[in-house]
């Protein structure tokens, strides 16, 4: 019988899913993903996890519990750094520790460290993980190469339209990939906006090359990979003339967002004051609040173009740019 490896669908899963699937499948094991986030998963996660932790980490706990009795091995890597001079947030660095101590009766966990900043290569960590499944080093290395190829293919970013469209509106949504991709957590935000006839661009679409010129102007180097990605995308979209508004999707208790968001909003005020909305996701599942805010925001963008007379009813000019 083949070994079953479970990968919880949370946090960095959305970015590196293809890599790990290819890697483990090449090693001849069966890969089982947890289902998309649903009410039970969220409820279990909230119960298991520390109450002050951020929402995605809580949901991750739920996913782990979902898989715990279905698989022989759980895959929860300890990812400290994936780029030079950058880290992930402390919660992601300490994720296996958190999970192992909060969820009881876990199967064995593949929890080796990947620390690119310290070791300057990924292979070591990945091979160590492979060794827990098979003892054949060359097979693991082959699987690693194969998985890398898959990752490279995935990495050609979509072309971002930059010309201003008179008829439709374009909105940039920025935030952690897991906030944007987990549709249960963000209550189908992107779908809702698209349903209103808006064009949506997300922070995952922007490549490093595009964000680099903007990030290099930030006085202190940002040391979180996710923070760099978000801030870079935010600054990039801010300078694109075809973007009509920016939505920042944050979540309860996110440490990175708590400092990146004020920075971005200030920059936005200085450079190009366009409509800007911060949505902070939490475990509430009532959608009315979100819908109202979203509708108001979209209306504002529409009216800005159709009937902006640039005369505000109060004080200074509200939104001329």
């Amino acid at each position: 019988m083949t070994v079953r490896v479970g990968i919880p669908k949370g946090l960095l899963f959305y970015e590196y899913e293809s890599f790990w699937r290819v890697f483990f499948e090449s090693l001849g094991v069966e890969v089982i993903f947890s289902p998309d986030t649903n009410k039970d998963i969220m409820k279990n996660g909230l119960k298991l996890c520390e109450e002050e932790a951020c929402l995605p980490v809580k949901i991750f706990h739920g996913h782990v519990l979902e898989l715990a009795d279905k698989v022989d091995m759980l895959f929860i890597p300890r990812i400290r750094s994936l780029h030079y001079r950058e880290y992930y947030c402390p919660m992601i660095c300490g994720l296996p520790e958190m999970v192992k101590n909060s969820v009881s009766l876990l199967p064995s966990v593949i929890d080796d460290t990947i620390d690119y900043y310290k070791h300057r290569y990924y292979k070591g960590g990945v091979v160590r993980m492979g060794l827990k499944i098979s003892s054949d080093q060359s097979k693991i290395k082959k699987a690693y190469c194969k998985a890398c190829k898959g990752l490279q293919n995935k990495n050609d970013y979509q072309k971002i339209p930059t010309d201003k469209n008179e008829k439709s509106y374009t909105i940039a949504i920025i935030g952690h990939t897991y906030n944007l991709t987990d549709h249960y957590m963000n209550m189908n935000l992107i779908k809702k906006i698209k349903g209103e006839g808006f064009q949506v661009l997300t922070s995952c679409m922007v490549s490093c090359g595009k964000t680099q010129p903007y990030l290099s102007k930030v006085p202190k180097r940002i040391f979180w990979s996710c923070g760099r990605e978000i801030l870079g995308a935010g600054l990039y979209y801010m300078h694109q003339q075809n973007i009509d508004g920016i939505i920042y999707v944050s979540c309860f208790g996110c440490g990175v967002d708590s400092l990146i968001e004020p920075y971005l909003s200030q920059q936005l005020k200085k450079v190009r004051p366009i409509p800007y909305l911060v949505i902070s996701l939490d475990e509430h599942t009532g959608e009315a609040g979100l819908n109202t805010r979203l509708e108001a925001f979209l209306d504002m963008i529409r009216w800005r173009r159709s009937c902006a007379n640039h005369i505000s009813s109060y004080g200074g000019n509200l939104y001329s740019c």
Partner: peptide, 22 residues
């Protein structure tokens, strides 16, 4: 004192400076 991650303390002053400016 500053810092270089992954703890938030390393980025404190950047944000505080801007808040005080405002």
């Amino acid at each position: 004192s500053g810092g270089h991650g992954p703890c938030r303390a390393g980025f404190y002053s950047e944000v505080q400076q801007r808040i005080l400016q405002q």
